[in-house]
C-alpha cells in the first residue's frame, strides 16, 4: 500500500468536505441576502459587518435548540433520516474533478477524490439514495403531512431523475466516456458541451432544480399546504442537517452542471497547456468555482422569481415535456454523430 497516496486522498477528502460545508453555510447567507435585494430589503445585516457572521449565528442557534423526538415515532429511523440526507449529499462530491492535476514535490496529485470509469452513474446512484433520507425521515416522524411530503418528494425525485438521465445520455454519446475527468478534458481541448447540447443543458438544469427540491420545485416542503413538509417534526440540528443537505446538494449539482456542460475547470480564453502544472491547477479551480457560484446564483435567482408549481403541473412537465424532449435530443444527437462519422 502506498501510504502517501492514502494520506493525499484523505487530505483531499477533508478539503473537499470542508469546502462544501463552508460553501453550503455561506450559500444560506447569500440566499437570504439575495432574497432581500430582490424584495427591496437589506437581508441579514446585524451579525458582524454586512451580517457576514449570520450563518454562524444560525448554526449556533440550531445547536442550542431543544431536541424533540415525537413520542410515537420510530427513534432509530427518525435519526437515520437526516444522517442519510447529509451523507448522500456529501458523497456526490467524490467524483467531481476540482481541477487539473497539481504537482507537489515531484508527485502528480489528482484533484479528484476518485476517478472511476462510471463517474456519472455513481452520481446517479448516490442521488437516488438521497430519496431515502427524505422518505425515512418523513415516515418515521409518524405524521401524515410529513409522510405526504416525503412521498411527493420521492416521486418528484424519481420522475426527474429519468429526464436527467436521458438528457445526460446525449453528452455521454458525445464524449464516449462515463468518467467525469475524461468529459472535462475533452471540453478543455475542444468546445464546451453546452455548445453542442443547449437543449440537453436546459433539461439537465431544470431536473437539477427539481432534484435539489429548489423552488419552483420545492413541493416536498410546501409550507402552505403541507405545513413544513417532510421535516416538520424535526428540530435542532437534525432539522439543520436536512436544510444543510439541501444547500450541499445545490452546491454539488451546480459543480456537476459546470463540469458536464460548462467546461469544468477550463478557464475560457486561457490556454492551460502554456501554464505550469500548479498554476494551471489554481486557474482551473478558480474557473470551476466561479462557474459553480454563478450557477448557484442563478438557482437562487429562479427561486426568488418563480412561484411553486402545482403538483399535477410538476408531473406534466416532467413526464410529458421533459422526457420526450430529452428523448428527441438523444435521438438527434445520435443521428448527427452517425452522420458526421460517415461523412
Amino acid at each position: 500500500m502506498d501510504w502517501e497516496f492514502i494520506l493525499e486522498k484523505l487530505l483531499l477528502i477533508t478539503v473537499v468536505v470542508t469546502v462544501s460545508l463552508v460553501v453550503a453555510m455561506y450559500a444560506t447567507y447569500i440566499e437570504r441576502k439575495f432574497a432581500g435585494f430582490i424584495q427591496d430589503r437589506y437581508g441579514p445585516d446585524r451579525a458582524g459587518p454586512f451580517g457576514i457572521l449570520q450563518p454562524l449565528a444560525d448554526g449556533l442557534k440550531l445547536f442550542f435548540k431543544e431536541e424533540v423526538i415525537p413520542s410515537h415515532s420510530n427513534k432509530l429511523l427518525f435519526v437515520l433520516g437526516p444522517c442519510l440526507a447529509m451523507l448522500t449529499a456529501m458523497m456526490t462530491s467524490a467524483v467531481i474533478p476540482w481541477s487539473s492535476p497539481i504537482e507537489i514535490g515531484g508527485r502528480t496529485v489528482s484533484l479528484q477524490i476518485a476517478d472511476i470509469n462510471i463517474g456519472i452513474l455513481y452520481v446517479f446512484g448516490v442521488v437516488s439514495m438521497g430519496v431515502y433520507g427524505m422518505m425515512i425521515g418523513g415516515w418515521a416522524s409518524n405524521n401524515k403531512f410529513s409522510l405526504m411530503a416525503a412521498l411527493r418528494g420521492a416521486s418528484q425525485a424519481i420522475s426527474y431523475e429519468l429526464a436527467m438521465g436521458l438528457s445526460l445520455i446525449a453528452v455521454l454519446m458525445l464524449s464516449g466516456s462515463l468518467s467525469l475527468r475524461v468529459i472535462t478534458e475533452q471540453q478543455v481541448t475542444g468546445l464546451w458541451n453546452i455548445v453542442y447540447q443547449p437543449l440537453g443543458f436546459l433539461i439537465f438544469f431544470v431536473c437539477a432544480l427539481a432534484e435539489c427540491n429548489r423552488a419552483p420545485f420545492d413541493l416536498p416542503e410546501a409550507e402552505s399546504e403541507l405545513n413544513f413538509g417532510y421535516h416538520q417534526e424535526y428540530s435542532s440540528m437534525k432539522l439543520g442537517f436536512f436544510l444543510f443537505a439541501e444547500y450541499i446538494n445545490m452546491f454539488i449539482s451546480c459543480a456537476l452542471i459546470a463540469t458536464l456542460y460548462l467546461g469544468g475547470y477550463d478557464m475560457p480564453f486561457v490556454n492551460e497547456a502554456n501554464l505550469s502544472g500548479s498554476s494551471a491547477a489554481i486557474v482551473g479551480a478558480v474557473a470551476l468555482f466561479s462557474k459553480t457560484f454563478f450557477l448557484i446564483l442563478v438557482f437562487m435567482w429562479i427561486r426568488w422569481t418563480l412561484p411553486r408549481f402545482r403538483y399535477d403541473q410538476l408531473m406534466n412537465l416532467g413526464w410529458k415535456s421533459l422526457i420526450p424532449l430529452a428523448l428527441a435530443n438523444m435521438l438527434i444527437t445520435g443521428a448527427v454523430i452517425l452522420w458526421t462519422m460517415k461523412g
Binding site: 472511476i116 452513474l121 439514495m129 415516515w139 409522510l147 420521492a154 424519481i158 431523475e161
Partner: peptide
C-alpha cells in the same frame, strides 16, 4: 464489475425499493 454494481444500486435500491416503500408506507 463496477457498471453492474452501480446499475444494481440505481435500479434496484434506488428506484424499485422506493416504489416498495411507497406502497408499504401508504
Amino acid at each position: 464489475a463496477q457498471f453492474l454494481a452501480i446499475v444494481n444500486i440505481i435500479v434496484y435500491a434506488g428506484a424499485i425499493m422506493v416504489l416498495f416503500l411507497f406502497v408499504v408506507m401508504l
